[in-house]
């Protein structure tokens, strides 16, 4: 990049989708001119706007280091984390920032993720021990191979970028969706867990794994390489096997 791009006078245009429910009937884009530097993130540009240009702008953020999962945004139409997307990727063009797709807009860049949190609570997102053990019996041992089976799915930071990437969730919000299914699979695939039966009904339902059409854009946008599309689709196979084999499996026909 040319030396001039980092000169004190350089600037970049940032368009932000505004929606203030008490005064706007629908969202609209507002343009801001923000000082440009090679090492500025889109999140920092939003902070500059809020600090120096318009203090009414609302957006979520916390850690600035891609682990809290708060600053998910549509950046030029693609779901990304604001903290790890840099202005230099767009300069000298403009950056267009909007709230994550498929969620209702609460205010400006803040979306309502109540639906996501509600679904997360329903899948028992914790280890339900396969066998109860006392302290005397020691820890639950796991081999590296058993760890591999769920490790990538445990990297989810609940940023909901995958939901903004999933048209099936946009078309039908009842769909369990990519991230939650990845977490469901993360616990089901853990050798220490015995809670598969409790998570089965949600998984086998029409709005469970069967709401997915393998668009797989969720896995493309995931900032932590969780590959939720893989979690969902390998459970289609598992769900189908269970569907056909439940009558011959002992105790399976009741479900």
């Amino acid at each position: 990049m040319a030396e001039g791009d980092r000169s004190p006078g350089a600037s970049i245009e940032v368009e932000v989708l505004r929606y203030r429910p008490e005064q706007d009937s629908e969202p609209f884009y507002q343009s801001f001119t923000v000082p440009y530097a090679e090492d500025l993130s889109v999140l920092q540009a939003l902070q500059h706007i809020k600090d120096d240009l318009d203090s009414t702008l609302s957006f979520r953020w916390s850690c600035r280091m891609a682990i809290c999962g708060s600053c998910g945004l549509m950046i030029n139409g693609i779901p990304k984390l604001g903290c790890r997307t840099f202005l230099r990727e767009y300069y000298p063009g403009r950056v267009r920032v909007g709230p994550l797709n498929h969620f209702p807009i609460e205010r400006d860049l803040v979306v309502d993720i109540e639906d996501f949190v509600g679904k997360l609570e329903k899948i028992h997102p914790y280890i339900i021990p396969r066998e109860p053990r006392t302290l005397d019996q020691g820890e639950y041992l796991q081999t590296p191979r058993q760890l591999q089976r769920y490790l990538q799915f445990s990297n989810c930071i609940n940023c909901t970028l995958c939901y903004a990437a999933c048209p099936q969730y946009g078309l039908d919000p009842a769909f369990l969706g990519p991230g939650i299914t990845a977490l469901l699979h993360r616990y089901n695939a853990d050798s220490r867990d015995g809670g598969q039966a409790k998570r089965a009904a949600i998984m086998h339902a029409e709005d469970g794994v069967w709401g997915c059409t393998a668009v797989s854009y969720c896995s493309e946008v995931c900032p932590k390489a969780v590959d939720p599309a893989n979690a969902i689709n390998q459970n289609k196979m598992a769900s189908a096997m269970d569907y056909f084999l439940r009558f011959v499996k002992p105790g399976g026909a009741r479900k």
């Binding site: 929606y19 429910p21 008490e22 005064q23 009937s25 629908e26 969202p27 209702p104 807009i105 078309l171």
Partner: peptide
């Protein structure tokens, strides 16, 4: 209705 402050009015975008 839209003048009422503090009232939630989540906006759903069309698909």
């Amino acid at each position: 209705e839209t003048r009422t402050m503090g009232k939630r009015r989540p906006y759903r975008r069309a698909m």
